[in-house]
Nucleic acid binder design. Structure first.
Lengths: 223, 223, 223, 223
DNA sequence: CATGAATGAGAATTCATTCAT
DNA sequence: TATGAATGAATTCTCATTCAT
């Protein structure tokens, strides 16, 4: 009598897989790769270590999926923003701010995207993820350059720089960064930086779209 | 009558310390912290593991010195560039290009500056190093803002973004990046990005000083 | 449907913990702390080194348990003897003889109670163990002094001296002490010594209760 | 031209040997065997580690000499006391007090006499040392038994018990034992214990020579 | 003779992975 | 399928001992 898998069972299985990924993600976000041992992940999901290996052939592949998953989620959000109806400047700013604000919530997870290769396999995945981010940003840049809104530039490399630029923001405050208002300022300043870089000498043309810094946007407009 | 150490010996000793640091650096540059076990470092210098501990009380302290050393060297070069007589724009560009081109030589070492905290002690050193880089860049930014050459901005965060932006360049090509010409383009594009971000809407004012991308600076000016 | 651990397995697990403690104890008894490396203990139980750490977080804690266990066993026996109905003299003698005879079986284990602090944690446990022994003996001494059977004395220090006195017996014959009859003589002589010291000048009063040496109690009295 | 050793040189050599032994002794007394690494000993004497091996073929042999030396010194003092003109009781008491009071000054050195066999060779030496102590005490015991002052007893084992009994005193206060008055009481109580054990039921005969507890000795004797 | 750098054999501890139940 | 005990290789660090200078 062959066992047929009940729908309930199937769901639980799919469930477990997802729960493992999320547990690993939570641990990485909280304490970095170092804290995310198989034993810790298993404990977090409420399974045994052995059970993890029923769903993932190795720790590396689990981590690859954690990255892939997290990135897919981000990419979806960013893509939606970037596909929006606003000007390229507005969309770029919104995308950077959106990503950066989430990144600040889990700095250790952010590390994961740029961290030291714990494992070659994981490293390969990470590079791909970064490229995906780059591609999304490249879209806005291209559309902005095409429309003349942005300065002419190597959109591919600019995209990479944008990823790198706000990456920095994630890494700096390893200590839980005090105030919410500080975070907002930080995010805004990063977005400003990226937008300025995208605009180039078109900034003047465009006019008051870009505040030169956090507090004087109005004054900058009157010129 | 105390025995005096021969000059040859003295040299070898001082040498050894440096050789250990360099060997560790080489290993980190080639394969990351992961590959730089004490045993590997010892083998690389041609010493026993025990000998390493004559020069460094712990692995952490060795790694701290590797970072400190590497950073000190970079900082010296960057500081010289930044203290130069050129315009802020030129100095910023030169600094970014200088740093980025060296970083491309040892991508894994670059990782070390942003890596996942392997060890709290090493991590502390890393954060300090990043701040030092930031401070150097902040200098040019401040001088440029003060002279009116750069747009008004949060120089601290812009400096961090610059560090982050070219950090990206170091991380991307983990695979040995094909052609030298590619590297040059990459470096130039990064510098362009950073300079644009610094200039902001002053770009137009300043005039054709900034090429919007690698080859078409003229066209970008006509607008 | 969670798997239930078979009773056999459960038993083996509980067993293992105990077996590790006993293996460590055996090794210490045979060759001292020196011979009881984690590797040796693991080999003795037939486990891997890693397995030991499933049961004990560190070598120190294992050793503490070895001591604690051994002492708890002794204390239980001694307490029973000392709580008995006999005269203080008889109970003291019985307690010393009981302890000493067991101690002679594992001289190296006895070392463990007085050994050089190998590890602060273990050392702390050892001091507590010695105090516990002392307290047990102090009970008989106090009861004997109170009843007038023993001479007035510092019961605390006398108790310590008793522990020390037969400690000596454990240490002397590191070489496998020849004959059983010798051991018996040794134990008896130690007990005599302790009892004499407890009695003090009450000895005469009490009468022939105490043999002055092993075999000639009658003759010793007539003098 | 053969080198002739100058008298000065000879002295320095003999000196060094002694200085090494004393340095080792100091270190052991201060922090136990654990703190007395060859490197530490060398630093203490102001020699190189290699130099130690010119005087002692191994660490074990150095430690053996440390023990032997220390014991020889003690034995000399004790022998003098025991060869004195007083009663056996007085001589025994004096010997115990003399030894114990010195032992309290360097508890860690005292450990060394009873410590866990760090090394079989050292262990062998330690056993011999203990026996030597025993022999000295046996002398008084024998003389006291012969004169009828002490109870008939196995002098060999009583001697061992005495060594063991005050050994305990050395081990108890690993923490620097506060007050001098406490120390005095401790030493006296130990001596009392040993003397009582030696006297046995002769105590009454002899009369008020033995104070049953700490404070009434002098007044009780002269009567 | 003196030096002290170098050796290298352990020792404790960690953790991804396997496998009997 | 699930469990988690067991494995064992790898890693950091220590220290007695040696030997070129």
């Amino acid at each position: 009598m062959a066992y047929r898998r009940s729908p309930l069972m199937q769901e639980r299985l799919a469930d477990n897989r997802q729960r493992i990924v999320l547990a690993a993600r939570r641990l990485i976000a909280a304490g970095g790769f170092r804290e995310a041992s198989i034993a810790a992940v298993a404990a977090e999901v409420g399974l045994s270590t052995g059970a993890i290996y029923r769903y993932f052939p190795s720790k590396a592949e689990l981590f690859v999926e954690v990255l892939t998953n997290a990135v897919a989620h981000e990419i979806a959000i960013l893509s939606a923003i970037i596909a929006g109806p606003d000007t390229a400047t507005q969309r770029l700013r919104a995308a950077v701010e959106s990503f950066a604000s989430r990144a600040l919530e889990g700095p250790h997870l952010a590390y994961a995207f740029i961290a030291e290769p714990i494992d070659p396999e994981v490293d390969a995945a990470r590079i791909i993820c970064r490229q995906q981010f780059g591609e999304v940003f490249e879209k806005v840049l291209k559309s902005g350059v095409k429309s003349g809104e942005f300065a002419s530039q190597s959109t591919e490399i600019s995209a990479a720089c944008i990823v790198g630029a706000f990456t920095e923001a994630l890494i700096r405050p390893v200590a839980p960064t005090a105030k919410t208002s500080d975070k907002k300022k930080l995010i805004k300043a990063i977005a400003d930086f990226c937008v300025r870089a995208a605009l180039g000498d078109n900034a003047a043309k465009i006019g008051p779209g870009l505040p030169a810094n956090n507090s004087k946007r109005v004054s900058s407009r009157k010129a």
